[in-house]
Design a protein around this nucleic acid. Structure first.
Lengths: 125, 125
DNA sequence: ATACAATGTAGAGTAAACTCTACGTCAAGA
DNA sequence: TCTTGACGTAGAGTTTACTCTACATTGTAT
């Protein structure tokens, strides 16, 4: 019902070194067995999935750490965590809007290039 | 009709050090005056704006350099450059789609948090 | 003529997020 | 028992994209 670091690396797609690094940064804190080996749970899988989402949306490790530390403190930090998520949702919305603008401009540029290239080759009858 | 590096830094919002770094990486190649000082043109302003757009959409400096080098070779590289832009447009579209998915999931999570918090505080009558 | 601010080059330093190395420990199979 | 492979820690190394330092020149205002 739990995973060694090697197994967990497999299921999450994160390297063993990365998992240890994340632990060092307090993003995740697996329990240890009697011989000091890390044991990751099922819940850790969904937690890593969420960490990946935060990363993919541009949240720096330091801030994910802040969230992780709150999470580790339990239910008393629910509101604070939600505030973080609401902030992040806004930044995500902004990011998307920015990228859409960039896409529109790139579209224009490509159309312009298409014109240029046509004109350029128009001397072949 | 042209700019010193200090002036150009002002109008583009890029630091002087960054401009020199970009030149070192062949992203931009301003002409030099008789005393070896860089002189940036009006065209360089739009070019930097485009570089910024590529950066903002996740293109690494190395690839921007590839584009810049092609651009410096002139019209014979138009097609190749357009191919790059078309590729990049696709990656941009993918990025946007990804972010939108992440936004939807984050929305779900926030809604869930809201529930949690309500339940949590429901013991105050 | 002289001070001083802007510019030049070369190279070192920084920050983030890994990624790898060296070396020691431990459990299990041949 | 011996060996192998996964795991442990501490710390060094890597990559990207700047950012800064040191020191030499040059243009301009007094």
């Amino acid at each position: 019902m739990d995973y060694s670091i090697g197994e967990f690396s497999e299921v999450t797609g994160l390297g063993i070194h990365t998992l240890r690094y994340y632990e060092h940064e307090s993003l995740i804190t697996p329990v240890r067995n009697s011989s000091n080996r890390r044991r990751y749970s099922e819940k850790d899988i969904t937690w890593i999935a969420f960490i990946k989402r935060l990363k993919a949306t541009g949240m720096p490790v330091k801030e994910i750490k802040r969230y992780a530390v709150l999470r580790a403190k339990g239910d008393s930090t629910l509101t604070e965590r939600m505030e973080m998520l609401i902030q992040h949702r806004q930044s995500l919305k902004d990011q998307i809007k920015q990228l859409q603008e960039h896409e529109a401009k790139l579209e224009e540029k490509i159309a312009f290039y298409q014109q240029e290239i046509e004109h350029h080759c128009s001397d072949t009858p």
